[in-house]
Every structure is written in C-alpha cells, then in structure tokens.
Amino acid sequence: MRHALPLIWRKSLERYRLIGCSCENCGTDYFPPRKVCPKCRRKGKIAPKQMPTEGKVYSYSLVHAAPSGFEFEAPYHVAIVELANGVRLLTQIVDSDAAKVKIGAPVKMVFRKIFEDDCEGVIAYGYKFKAV
C-alpha cells in the first residue's frame, strides 16, 4: 500500500497532537479540523485548537478481517471516541483488555505507529487510544 507522502506530512499536527479547530463565532470544536464552520458558514471564524486527549468510548467494533497493512494486528479494536469536549473521532484502541473496551469506558491518547509504506518507505505516526 503506497500512501501519499504529502498527505502524511500535512496531517502530522492532527495525528501527532490532536490539533483540531474551533469556530470563534459559535464556539463549536471540530476534529479533524475544517476550513469552514458548517453552522456559521461565511460568518464563521476557524482557528486551530488543541483537542482534549482524554474521552470515552462512544461505540466500538472488533476487527477480524483487517485491511491490507493491518493484517498482523488483527483482531484489534476500532472505536468512535467521544473526547471531553464532545468531539468524536475514529481510532484504534490498543494496550487494552477486551473486557475493558466497552461503551462509556474512559480512554486516553497514546502515540503509536499507524502504518508504514513498506520496509523502505516513510512511517506514519499518530494517535491511538487506550483504556485507562
């Protein structure tokens, strides 16, 4: 699987540090960051914002048939995590016993390898979450 290098690089702030954005007009937070606030449209004023790095599991699934590049990690949990500010994001859950991965379970951000192009390619790092 060949990934676009510019895409990996452009997304590094959001993937490394959970930098999203907030609309200064209506106060809504977004992750991943948006260019336009869908609520305020032209009146919106978008600025980068650090998202909270803790949240809870909103929904989850255990992946058995993994896409290419993730075969050796299966089975693994993916979850929609609701951050402390209400923003939801899709993420892998690692380092957590299956019994702990439940709706409402508290989770925190960790820094992991997401994928690599191949053994000579670039490595994409970023957030995953673990149960606390």
């Binding site: 490394y16 050796f72 990690e73 690692v94 380092d95 960790v110 820094f111 992991r112 390898k113 997401i114 490595i123 790092y125 995953k128």
Partner: peptide
C-alpha cells in the same frame, strides 16, 4: 514493544 511501537513512539510517550 508491540507491533506498532518503536523507539520513536516510546520516546514521544516518555517526553510527554
């Protein structure tokens, strides 16, 4: 270290 960990991810976690 797990499949998705390396000396870089461990360094970031310790640094944080």
């Amino acid at each position: 270290a797990a499949f998705d960990e390396d000396s870089c991810t461990l360094a970031v976690e310790a640094a944080r």
